[in-house]
């Protein structure tokens, strides 16, 4: 076999990427630019305008920081979201643990029960909670009939009602976050601890909880952000008496027609979200490093 000397130059890399590969991105990019990026930019622009004269002004930011009602709304938002985050995580944990470890046929049923409400939409569930919690609702009727209370307990149109409703809305997401984390823990580690003589309680305290901290953090995080940005549940279950940032933003747009103020509130809410997500993300990566997972 004689080897023929080749004088052809090295072939150019055929796989080199050409601009044609970007063409499919144009339509989704165009839509997102026009109806997302540009509107957000305009909202930021409006936030530094005077509500009446449209001149450059930081008045709305000043008002946000000095108006007691608005600051109260901000703190109410944070309090509500914190409570929801805790309730969701505490309630999601047993369900997630069951789903992660069970092999029985009930697993599918519990999974469906846990996730299905998400299909129903917020209105249906909020409506359900209203007829359960309102003054002449289900729970109060029962309590009065049983003679525990003489006048209806205030269960809706306040912090309690909103936290119950939001916990219900966010719970499936908490379950999914914890499920992923618990599924990542080798069940043999728990068995190994038991063989070594650990009681169920010490297994939970020394094995399960420490190893699922990343899941707990991500459940807290997702619950907090979902609760803080929720609109419909606080609007319906909180009513006029319990205002949070999201409902206050709506009022500024629809009732006061004060766009700069609405924009400022929206930006504060957005910054709060991004800060929490960022900080939570940092905590999560640090935990993952520490636990080597």
């Amino acid at each position: 076999m004689t080897i023929v000397a080749t004088d052809s130059p090295a072939a150019p890399a055929r796989r080199a990427f050409t601009l044609r590969g970007y063409v499919p991105l144009f339509p989704p990019f165009a839509v997102l630019l026009l109806f997302f990026a540009v509107p957000i930019g305009m909202m930021i622009g409006i936030s530094v305008q005077d509500p009446k004269t449209s001149q450059f002004s930081m008045a709305s930011y000043q008002r946000f920081l000095t108006d007691g009602l608005i600051i109260a709304g901000l703190f109410r938002t944070i309090l509500m979201s914190g409570l929801v985050a805790i309730c969701v995580t505490v309630m999601a944990y047993p369900v997630a643990y069951f789903l992660a470890r069970s092999t029985s046929r009930w697993r599918a049923v519990v999974f469906a029960l846990a996730i299905a409400p998400e299909l129903a939409g917020v209105v249906l569930r909020t409506y359900g909670w209203l007829i359960i919690l309102e003054d002449r609702g289900f729970v109060n009727d029962a309590l009065i009939w049983l003679g525990f209370v003489s006048s209806p307990l205030p269960l809706a149109k306040n912090l309690f009602g909103v936290v119950v409703g939001l916990t219900h809305v966010v719970l499936p997401f908490g379950i999914l976050a914890l499920l992923t984390s618990i599924q990542g823990i080798d069940p043999n580690i728990e068995k190994a601890a038991q063989i070594l003589g650990a009681s169920r309680l010490s297994v939970i305290r020394h094995i399960l909880l420490p190893l699922s901290i990343p899941g707990i953090v991500s459940s807290l995080l997702i619950s907090f952000t979902m609760a803080a940005s929720a609109y419909a549940t606080p609007a319906l279950l909180g009513g006029a008496r319990f205002k949070v940032l999201a409902t206050m933003i709506f009022e500024q747009i629809m009732f006061y027609i004060n766009w700069p103020m609405a924009a400022v509130m929206a930006i504060v809410l957005l910054v709060l979200m991004l800060a929490i997500t960022f900080a939570g993300g940092r905590v999560e990566t640090r935990l993952h490093k520490k636990l080597n997972i």
Partner: peptide
Amino acid sequence: IMAFLLSPLAVPQIVKGVAIVIFLSSA
């Protein structure tokens, strides 16, 4: 590019709503 396509997820719906209504009205 993926991060840009997913970026609307980081923004609460109510904020997106405010932004769009301001955009449509002032444009």
